[in-house]
Structures are given as C-alpha cells and as structure tokens.
Amino acid sequence: MVQELVVAGAAAVSACMVYVAAAARVVKQYERGVVFRLGRLSGGVREPGFTMVVPGVDRLRKVNMQIVTMPVPAQEGITRDNVTVRVDAVVYFKVVDAANAVIEVEDYRFAVSQMAQTSLRSIIGKSDLDDLLSNREKLNQGLELMIDSPAIGWGVQIDRVEIKDVSLPDTMKRSMARQAEADRERRARVINADAELQASKKLAEAAKEMAEQPAALQLRLLQTVVAVAAEKNSTLVLPFPVELLRFLERAAQQQPALSEPQSPPPAQPSPPPEVEP
C-alpha cells in the first residue's frame, strides 16, 4: 500500500513538472507577449518576465518592441520637372501596441515596407529635382507623415524616415557639371569686373593726389624700380620719367622759334641837310 502511494506521488510530481515545463514561458525585456486562447485574445499583453499559459489551449506570440531599421529598396520615378531618378531611403519604426500589431495586420514589417515604397514613389512624382537634392528635410517629414498615417492603426509608430541617396543618369550629371562650371565662371567674371571697378576708383584718387604733388610721381617711380629689382631678374625695365618727356617736348617747341632768321630793322629817314645863312 505504501509503495503504491509512493509511486502515485512520484507520478503526480512528474505530471506537474511536465505541465509546468509545457506551460512556462519567458518574455524578454524588449518583448511583449500576446496570448490567444482558442483563437481569441486572452487578457492583456504579457509583460516581460516569467508567465504561464495553458498547454494545448493558449498560444503565446512574442512581439519585438525595439526600434526597427528597415531599408527601402531604390525606387525609380520621374520628378515633376521630367527627370528620371532612383531614390532609396531608410525607415525607423517601432511597435507601440503589441495586440494591434498582431491582430490588425498580417505582417506589420512587410506592410510598413510596402507602404514606404509606395510613399517614396509618390514623393518622387510630386517633387522637383532641386528639392530632392537640397531640400531633403521637408521631403523626409512629408514621407514620414504618409507612412505614419496608416501605420497608427497597426500599432506601429514611425520614428524617422531618411532619404539616403538620389541617383541621376550620366547625361544629367554631365549637364549639371557643365551648368555648375558655367555658373562658377560667371561669378568669377563678375568678381573680376568688380575688382577692376574698385581698382579704377582707387587709381583715380591716387592720380588726383599725385597731380597736386608732382614729387609723388617720382617717389612712385623709385618704388617701382625697387620692387622690380627685388625679383633678381636679369633684365631691368626702367620707366622713363614723364616730366622729362614734357621738358623735351617744350624744348623742341622752342627750338624752331630760335632758328628762324631775324629781318633787318627798317631804315630811319635821314635828316634834311642844314642850309647855312
């Protein structure tokens, strides 16, 4: 009799251990558990830690609550200004309602991926090429709103959307390179012309000052000679003084006047002879 009780107790303990092993579940810190009992949602969401389910009746499904980084495949489209481009992006999202993520949508990751691709193609068609290249913050916000609107009902929250790269055809790259080169050349010419204008104004002011002080021109000539001689050139160009040219010009004008023959003075009439009385 005692032996039978011992065997029955051992069998009961073994059955309890088997039941506990079959019913025991562990939910990790970054997960939440959703229990379906006979196909229906049972109770609330199971928190992290140890939990129990009814074997054969309950089915526990774990949902990851971490932020998911999902790359969006490159989408090819035509912009509003008729340029063919390929744009890829990346979506950051997380599950905020584990029950809705399991019940409302079959596969929330696949759903978010498809929604991101269609939204990206829509953004390409509504934007200009310049916006895709330089105004990405605004496009990222618009893309995030387009994806987040349907994802709210799935228990998913879009954290951030970023456009990674914009690929252009080779012909468009060459055209943009030529345009950028022409724009840089135009700006260089404008800057050079502005510099010439400023230099001419300064030279005019310097000319006025030198006109008032003729000795300043000679000092400037000597400074030029010193600057040229400092380069240690084999040939030294010495400017000819302008004042000396003017002196020679005045001397040449006075030379013909001195070389002309002078006419004799007119004869004075002789006095009449004196008559003696």
Rank of each mutant, 00 (worst) to 15 (best):
N100L: 10
V34Y: 12
N64S: 05
L120F: 04
S122N: 14
D148K: 11
L203F: 12
M1V: 05
D107N: 15
R178T: 10
K62S: 15
V228L: 08
I152L: 08
R189N: 11
P256H: 05
A193L: 15
R46F: 04
V105N: 06
A74R: 15
G9M: 07
I123K: 09
A177M: 13
R80P: 00
I103M: 09
L219Y: 03
G155N: 09
E209Q: 12
D131M: 10
Y108K: 05
A10V: 10
P271N: 03
R25L: 01
L133M: 11
S122G: 14
Q268K: 13
E209N: 06
P241A: 05
S134D: 11
L217C: 02
A22R: 15
Q29P: 00
V18F: 06
K208I: 13
E47Q: 15
A216P: 02
R160C: 00
R80G: 00
I191H: 14
S175M: 04
V166M: 06
L41N: 10
D58W: 04
A24P: 00
N82G: 00
A207K: 10
M1G: 13
M176K: 11
V83F: 05
P266Q: 09
R80H: 05
P71M: 07
S270Y: 06
I147Y: 03
R246Q: 15
Q262D: 09
D131S: 14
E106K: 06
V90D: 01
V228S: 12
E47A: 14
G43M: 14
I163R: 07
A98C: 07
R189A: 13
K138S: 03
E209R: 14
M176E: 02
A216V: 05
V112L: 14
Q262M: 09
A21L: 11
M176L: 15
D97K: 13
P269S: 08
Q114Y: 10
F93S: 07
M115I: 02
D58T: 04
T51N: 14
P269G: 05
L217S: 04
D97A: 10
D88G: 01
K201N: 09
E181P: 01
Q29G: 00
E162I: 01
Q179T: 11
A11Q: 06
V45E: 13
V161K: 11
W154K: 07
L120C: 04
G56Y: 04
V242G: 09
M176G: 01
E106P: 00
E231M: 01
R186I: 06
E31F: 03
L139W: 02
N140H: 09
L120M: 08
E260G: 00
P241G: 03
F36V: 04
K28P: 01
L244A: 15
K232E: 07
A204E: 14
I147H: 04
L145Q: 15
L143G: 11
P273E: 02
Q213M: 10
V95R: 08
P55C: 13
E104G: 00
L38H: 12
V68S: 07
L60K: 11
V156I: 12
Q157G: 01
V242R: 13
R46N: 02
L5A: 07
A229Q: 11
E243K: 08
S234K: 08
A193P: 11
E231I: 01
I191W: 13
R86S: 06
I158W: 02
R187N: 09
G142M: 11
D128N: 13
L60M: 14
A230L: 02
E205F: 12
I163G: 03
A116R: 00
E231Q: 09
V7G: 02
I123L: 15
N192Q: 15
Y92F: 09
S200F: 05
R186G: 08
